[in-house]
Design a binder for these strands. Structure first.
Lengths: 358, 358
DNA sequence: ACCGACAGGTATATCGTTATACCAAGGCCG
DNA sequence: CGGCCTTGGTATAACGATATACCTGTCGGT
């Protein structure tokens, strides 16, 4: 019952035959290149419509044109991805630009082993599957940029690059604004003992935000607070928080900042589990402003960035690199700087440091 | 400094020239087809290695072979994706099978408009970009199966299909086991007033789980409880919960089940915000068992399923459909039925229904 | 009346790979 | 020793679309 028309997929030759013209004529019509009379054009269009024909992407790609596909390689362990929708939101933004321009997004999730990642890139480039690559999570001395350069694959990085890394980058202006605002907010509330729970050490944004964090404290005449490194999982964040707030820790922080929202949420409840009140005993700040932060209780104070817009901007930048005309000519709005979103997880510091639970 | 070798990408002809053989010989070596003497084979392999050559995916695809790419189309609004890592985990599982077999995953995130989705499929099929499609979120009278059949694109559905929908399906056995277990658990704890907060009505799993929920209650001689429909966002779940627990609601439920974990977490804190204790006043149950449920406080009791394994199984099933040999010959373990994971968000029902907050 | 320009097409080489058909040389058997 | 198989290759035609080169009328200008 389904598609009783001939079994095989139609080719440009079928369309030409049905329209009674040559294949060249069909090609010209669909690409608007030569000069074809209106009636002929219409016959071709009708024939294509009738046969449900559209040019084979592989044939077009082989002919030397573009693949019309962009790759994104995410190198995080599955259980990290399982907790944090960060990537999904970014991807949704990328797709918003790609889809209307008829480009596809080839997604690769590779483990954290570095050679697995390199192999993935080599395959992508060697097989000429994609026109470009969007990268995230820049690392210190990231080998990927040089690799992609060698492979002659255009690349766009989302987020902060290591200084002088030669790569096109998309990021909001005033990257440090959010963190600075958060520290100011907490200082206002009387906090003097801080901790920062970061992601892995090799991530540029870990190093970068840590630096902003420390200099904001230094500007207030405070020594850098506690620095905890995690693997980005909420479990690890909970463990780090438990260690920070342990009664054995004589100089417990009263304010803890986390590198993403899910870690902050995990930390917030780890504190509660220990008997601390949030924000009464400990103030908590996240990063990203994902929807979940708005519905937990207490609501999560966090540093917000519009990941969807950042994704769109990255895709648009890739199109610029590839010289692809965006379908929607209206320029994308400028990216907004990260901003502090104050909810309920931050509050006045209790007088005197080193207070105990209960 | 980068790649001072000739600028252009090497082709099979370059390899053949360097090895001093014909292109056919090279092709035979890399595909292991004809009979080639060991020394010749080695020279070819060395040449390929030296030039960093690998066969162009487009050329191979054009030749009539496979694209070596699978598509997955997710049709959820971006803000839903932003909250729920469900898809990311599934995708990670799919990739685990695809990557070693050198297959790519082409991801499309389309809005919820139904024609946008159809267009996406038509493009994928028309352009012959992928060998098959993995579907999720089966809908009632889902038009996609017939469409993909017409387009002759192999499809694998993840999750419960509408009865008699003609599609290859991957799902755990005893789909209703988890929900039944949860209801039994709550009955044991003395609960008699239930609510179910579901996703959109047109999703098959909404209808299906609702039915299991109702029949489990009926088996205990109870009338079906409250049924709330949401758009899957945590915000909507919070609103639904607030309505359920409103003092104006004379027959408030003492146990609420949610269609996913983020909704359950949102619901749990909506209840707390109203002054109810969880699990003291209200018990809460989620679905999926994502990592976050283990770190919130109180820990989320939820119906767990191994989404990563389900993703793997879907990819493996696709390979079976496409007649692609899996690289890892060891058969995948059978999928486990959804099971209740008891944490802290469920507890004994307070005597007497209709209790008030505080 | 003849030339050139132009509209409206057609024929064909090309992209990189693989499969089919083919071929040459050597060994084995009757 | 002639015929036939096997080994180790080579030449070439696809795959589907596009761009280049080419052809054929028709019209305008001189």
């Amino acid at each position: 019952m389904a598609g009783r028309k001939g079994a095989a997929k139609p080719t440009i030759a079928d369309v030409a035959a049905l329209a009674g013209v040559s294949v060249s004529a069909v090609s010209k019509v669909v690409n608007g290149r030569g000069s074809i009379s209106a009636p002929t054009r219409q016959r071709v269009l009708d024939a294509a419509e009738k046969l449900r024909w559209s040019p084979s992407a592989t044939a077009v790609a082989l002919r030397g044109a573009r693949t019309k596909a962009i790759a994104m390689v995410a190198s995080r362990a599955p259980d990290v991805l399982a907790a944090d929708p960060h990537f999904t939101v970014l991807i949704a933004g990328i797709e918003r630009e790609l889809a209307p321009a008829d480009h596809g997004l080839l997604l690769h999730i590779v483990g954290e082993e570095p050679d697995a990642e390199e192999r993935a890139y080599r395959r992508l480039a060697g097989e000429r599957r994609v026109d470009g690559v969007i990268l995230t999570e820049s690392r210190v001395n990231d080998p990927r940029f040089q690799l992609l350069r060698d492979l002659r694959l255009p690349a766009v990085l989302v987020g902060e690059p290591w200084p002088d890394d030669p790569v096109t980058t998309v990021r909001a202006p005033a990257q440090d604004a959010g963190m600075a605002e958060a520290v100011a907010h907490l200082l206002d509330l009387g906090h003097r003992h801080f901790a920062y729970v970061s992601g892995p050490e090799d991530r540029v944004h870990t190093v970068f935000r840590r630096r902003v964090f420390e200099s904001a404290l230094a500007a207030a005449g405070l020594r850098p607070g506690w620095m905890m490194t995690t693997d980005f999982t909420p479990q690890d964040a909970a463990m780090a928080t438990t260690a920070l707030l342990s009664p054995k820790n004589a100089s417990r922080p009263t304010a803890v900042l986390y590198a993403n929202d899910t870690m902050a949420i995990a930390g917030m409840y780890a504190a509660r589990r220990l008997g601390y009140d949030v924000p009464g005993d400990v103030s908590v700040v996240g990063y990203d402003d994902l929807p979940l932060g708005g519905v937990v209780f207490p609501g999560l104070t966090t540093i917000g960035q519009d990941l969807t817009e950042i994704g769109r901007a990255a895709a648009a930048e890739m199109f610029r690199l590839l010289d692809v005309a965006r379908t929607d000519e209206t320029p994308l709005p400028a990216l907004a700087a990260p901003r502090l979103v104050v909810r309920e997880s931050t509050g006045p510091a209790r007088p005197g440091p080193g207070h105990s639970p209960r």
